[in-house]
């Protein structure tokens, strides 16, 4: 709410639309956010998505992409900002088409863009079987659209498709005799395609994202927030609810209680985004392994009151700081009177 504004002004616009859409906001360990349509089986978000190769944009533009993608997803009208968007939105078939159309226009307009997008499409095709079907229909639409456009534009797009197709066979831009300089983005995309083909483990390990369902927040009355799916989230993270609750309360500087349906009732007004940020911090602090970044860890009490995280993936063990509430100021004289 008001607390948030100064921190991330760019997110402000999307917040309201994101909060109650049926898409699933997915938090990743590196702090990026992906949106998927809730129509898919929700469990899929946890596992089958993880092994997918990251969108190229992740490599091209680091993490910055994630935010615009969530924004664009929130309001469909907004044109995509880059190719990376498409990948993250692939699941949403209907919406995706729209996006694709827009993307196509953008591609045709300037010559440099298609190259990047073409490379992207290719990577998609190879990595995701599911996508293929969708891709086919889109390609048709895409080409149909292109035909309507003027010759000059189609040329550019053709070039893009040419570039797209022959990366492996070594023709076109990739041909041996080809003297044209290959743009950096294309080379980069080729690198990632080849890497994912030849050495999938390698390309996955660094960017394998960890996904949990978004926290569901509801307002209870005027000054209480209900965190509904805390049990689910905790189960995913293999942490006790008490631990996460304690962390939430310490970070948010409030307190609260658990209601009959094991939902968490937090005093104060918080929005999903805020809770999400805190949960993300929690994941970074208490869930992911610092050495291999795997979320497959266990938290247990070691000797002398310290908590230790043991990684099931690489076997490393580290201690984590205890949750501390810290200083909390006295607010209002009346509160003080009450105790």
């Amino acid at each position: 709410m008001d607390n948030e504004v100064q921190d991330q002004p760019e997110r402000k616009a999307s917040r309201k639309s994101v909060a109650f859409t049926d898409e699933q906001l997915v938090v990743e360990t590196d702090g990026s956010v992906t949106i998927m349509s809730a129509a898919e089986e929700p469990k899929e978000t946890a596992q089958s998505h993880t092994p997918r190769t990251p969108p190229l944009s992740a490599a091209l533009e680091a993490f910055a992409v994630a935010d615009p993608s969530s924004q664009a997803a929130a309001d469909e009208a907004a044109p995509p900002e880059d190719g990376g968007l498409d990948l993250s939105l692939l699941k949403k078939k209907k919406k995706k088409k729209k996006v694709e159309g827009l993307d196509g226009d953008a591609e045709a307009e300037d010559g440099a863009a298609p190259a990047e997008d073409g490379g992207l499409d290719l990577t998609m095709k190879k990595k995701k079987k599911k996508v293929k079907k969708v891709e086919g229909t889109e390609e048709d639409e895409f080409t149909a659209k292109l035909k309507q456009l003027e010759v000059k534009d189609t040329e550019g797009a053709e070039e893009a498709q040419q570039e797209e197709g022959d990366m492996e066979t070594g023709t076109g831009v990739w041909g041996h005799s080809e003297s044209k300089t290959i743009p950096y983005t294309l080379l980069l995309s080729r690198f990632f395609t080849v890497l994912s083909q030849k050495n999938p483990d390698h390309s996955l390990s660094g960017t394998k994202s960890y996904k949990i369902p978004p926290p569901q927040c509801m307002r209870e009355g005027n000054r209480k927030t209900v965190f509904a799916n805390i049990a689910d989230i905790c189960k995913r993270m293999k942490r006790t609810e008490e631990h996460l609750t304690a962390y939430l309360f310490a970070e948010l500087g409030t307190n609260g209680s658990v209601d009959g349906n094991r939902r968490l009732v937090i005093k104060g007004r918080f929005q999903q985004k805020q809770i999400e940020n805190v949960v993300r911090k929690y994941i970074i602090e208490y869930v992911t392994c610092k050495t291999c970044r795997s979320p497959d860890t266990e938290l247990n009490k070691g000797e002398n009151r310290l908590y230790f995280i043991t990684c099931n993936n690489c076997g490393s063990r580290r201690s984590v700081t205890a949750i501390k509430t810290g200083f909390s100021a006295q607010i209002g004289k009346r509160k003080k009177m009450q105790g």
């Binding site: 709410m1 607390n3 909390s328 607010i331």
Partner: peptide
């Protein structure tokens, strides 16, 4: 740290 107060105050 931040603490919520009443209304939109913090």
């Amino acid at each position: 740290r931040i603490q919520q107060r009443n209304g939109r105050k913090s």
